[in-house]
Amino acid sequence: MSFLTLDHVSHHYFSKKNFTKALDDITFSIKEGEFVALLGPSGCGKSTILSIIAGIIEHTAGEIYVNDQPLQQAELDIGYMLQQDYLFPWKSIIDNVLIGPKISHDQSEETKKNAVDLLNQVGLSGITEDYPDSLSGGMRQRVALVRTLITNPKILLLDEPFSALDYQTRLKLEDLVWELLGLYSKTSILVTHDIGEAIAMSDRILLMDANPGSIAKTFEVPVELRNEKPFLVRRHPKYQILFDKIWEKLNKNEANSLQHEVVESPNET
């Protein structure tokens, strides 16, 4: 049984004089504990899919099911990580981490203890009373990760969470996130435009097309790669084979579409 299903989901953005179809007929499902990557050029509606699953925007057509129940009734607990950490600068680290529990009126000592433990686990001890402005980008994104995990979400939505970081920090954080999500066997969706990152982290890659956003092709990541840390995946012989396959397909899509937009090239090959 699938955990989350998108069934012919479409989305339109309306403006006064115009409308654009951001998503066209998106259908896929995710099993519990699975890590899926949505890969595609900017503007293909990847992030829109996450916002729809998060319930932040309403899709205009189709249906979403969680455990075979429509999303609206399912009360899906989600964790959302954005491109940047978006820590609240006026709150201390511990208050930032505990914002989710605060909103759901859970301010027990146990949750606090959990928060400190999780911070320790991501290598951030003794900074609970500091403020975000004294932390580096990588540290801040780790705090954001803890903030996301503390509410024990059923599904994690990762919206290019590493894109604002420098390359080295990014590789380290990929490993950390991958390990933590594996440890707690979280169902996750990663949005990225980086082919390498998609292969390194996920079990399955949904390659997207732009204008309107749709799923062009699904790639299964070989089992040997799924169980390796992202950093090691990048050195595996099968990594390059899959990378080339996706690269080729991406370029073909680009050539087919009459878009003149330059598709962002992956940052590393």
């Binding site: 916002s51 998060a54 319930g55 932040i56 989600i78 964790g79 959302y80 954005l82 940047q84 978006y86 609240f88 914002i99 989710g100 909103i103 759901s104 509410t151 939505l157």
Partner: peptide, 14 residues
């Protein structure tokens, strides 16, 4: 106010 702050809070069902 940066809508992403609002997005973070909405993801916690604020």
């Amino acid at each position: 106010v940066d809508p992403n702050y609002v997005k973070v809070l909405k993801s916690f069902k604020a």
